[in-house]
């Protein structure tokens, strides 16, 4: 019997709006498709409509096809829960899902992902939101294995790692997630390690 390739799913969730979930989704999917040679799909499971924006900018306003492909990566805009299982069975090696920032709404699907990435900030004006997320998830099984990408200075990140026993990396901002150079590849190597 032919051995079935195992699907690898990455879930990305933001603690607050504007943390860069879509940007990281695009960057990681590009890395998986191009650098690691994995057949990759990107799923938008939130109501932001950013994938539709990508489509209209890239192909023009009249283009409405769903899903659409850019650089061989398949984009699924505005996916609802009932469609997700179908996408998982379409023969992809990897699926990267952008859950946006409404984490309570999408937590169930996020928990199903193999690699769970949380984007947030621990700057003074964002710390309260981080603590809220921490309180919400602190008793979730396996939360110690989630990867937190946080913006803040190194000392704060070390503190979070020590105090909350979470895997933490500094959040990197790349101007263009479609652009991959050594720096981006090294960063994504570390994220998916």
């Amino acid at each position: 019997m032919m051995e079935e390739n195992k699907l690898f799913t990455v879930g990305i969730i933001g603690i607050d709006k504007g943390e860069g979930a879509t940007s990281l989704t695009v960057g990681l999917a590009t890395y998986l498709q191009e650098i690691l040679c994995k057949k990759t799909a990107m799923v938008e499971m939130n109501t932001e409509g950013e994938f539709a924006d990508i489509r209209s900018v890239y192909f023009g306003r009249n283009y409405t096809q769903t899903p659409f492909e850019i650089f061989k990566i398949c984009y699924y805009p505005g996916v609802v829960k009932s469609e997700y299982a179908k996408i998982c069975n379409m023969g992809y090696d990897c699926i990267v899902t952008d859950f946006g920032y409404q984490y309570e709404k999408y937590m169930e699907d996020f928990l199903r992902c193999d690699k769970k990435i949380v984007l947030g900030s621990i700057n003074l004006w964002k710390y309260r939101k981080y603590l809220q997320f921490h309180e919400y998830t602190r008793n979730f099984p396996g939360v110690g294995n989630w990867l937190f990408l946080l913006s803040g200075d190194e000392e704060d990140i070390r503190m979070i790692h020590a105090k909350h026993n979470r895997k933490v990396l500094g959040k990197e901002f790349f101007r263009n997630p479609y652009h991959l150079s050594e720096a981006e590849v090294q960063y994504y190597d570390a994220v998916l390690k």
């Binding site: 191009e34 650098i35 650089f71 652009h179 991959l180 150079s181």
Partner: peptide
């Protein structure tokens, strides 16, 4: 491999 995107520039 060959990269689809021309924006991938590795050392």
């Amino acid at each position: 491999p060959r990269y689809e995107s021309q924006q991938i520039k590795l050392t």
